[in-house]
């Protein structure tokens, strides 16, 4: 079902963004500038509350940026588009829909429900939820709910998949399993992936490049390339060295 299509080339050019808080401008993004090549897995790593998630909302087109431009394959984005899908930290499944109906939200919204029926079933099978298609969200565990959310994203065959700390609330065992699944899935599917996380190990385990962001307002402190071949082991000495480097950049050198 995943077509192996080329991922988007994402360009983020001089993006600034500020929120208005009680009449005052609160800058959250300061001159963020980077390029994600087609099919690349880029992690945005930074302290919580630094504005990483805001950046994803801008790229998704849910909000316009205050300044700067975001280009997808050279075209400036104008709003949301099913080719750019976010997977949120919370599964945000609709509790009144079954797992399958939740996965079908994208096709249903675009009126392609019939045409995409096989694709929906395939996505559920891919995340291991084929047997739970008729279950309601309240009957799922946290990990299963997040898988259902992943299936809902994949059904749209995204060229750019944005992951907003999607594993942040899972228990550590489920988290490890889903990190491997995500990595394998991305390798097969060929979409460009943008992962927001504050987990250094997760970023190093999954991404080709790790962009380390500063505290709010977020700037890019470093652009680290992770060359270690996959599947990666978290105790790989090169990853351990990178981990110390990242923690140093974040001012947590003693924690390494």
């Amino acid at each position: 079902m995943v077509s192996g299509k080329r991922g988007f080339r994402l360009e983020v050019r001089g993006v600034r963004h500020a929120f208005e808080l009680r009449g005052q401008d609160l800058p959250v993004l300061e001159d963020v500038d980077f390029v994600a090549e087609p099919g690349e897995f880029v992690a945005l790593l930074g302290p919580s509350g630094c504005g990483k998630s805001t950046l994803l909302r801008l790229v998704a087109g849910l909000e316009p940026s205050s300044e700067g431009s975001i280009l997808v394959d050279g075209q400036p984005i104008t709003g949301t588009d099913p080719s750019r899908i976010i997977m949120f930290q919370d599964p945000t499944l609709y509790p009144w829909r079954t797992v399958r109906a939740n996965a079908a939200v994208g096709p249903e919204a675009r009126g392609t429900l019939k045409r995409d029926a096989a694709r929906i079933d395939a996505a559920l099978a891919l995340v291991g939820l084929a047997d739970f298609a008729a279950a309601y969200p309240h009957e799922l565990s946290g990990g299963m709910a997040q898988r259902a959310s992943l299936a809902r994203a994949l059904v749209n065959d995204p060229h750019l998949l944005m992951l907003d700390e999607p594993l942040g609330k899972l228990d550590s065992l489920t988290r490890l399993a889903m990190q491997r699944e995500l990595s394998a899935l991305w390798q097969r599917a060929g979409f460009t992936a943008l992962l927001v996380t504050h987990d250094v190990e997760e970023a190093l385990l999954l991404a080709d490049r790790v962009l380390v962001l500063s505290d709010r307002p977020a700037r890019i402190l470093a652009d680290l390339r992770v060359e270690t071949p996959r599947p990666r082991r978290r105790d790989d000495p090169r990853l351990v060295a990178l981990r110390s480097e990242v923690l140093g950049l974040l001012g947590l050198a003693e924690a390494a």
Partner: peptide
């Protein structure tokens, strides 16, 4: 967030109201 999910997948305002 319920609206955001559907909006990113190409939902129209009418879909957001009804569904």
């Amino acid at each position: 967030s319920y609206y955001d999910v559907a909006r990113t997948m190409g939902a129209s305002p009418w879909f957001l109201v009804r569904k």
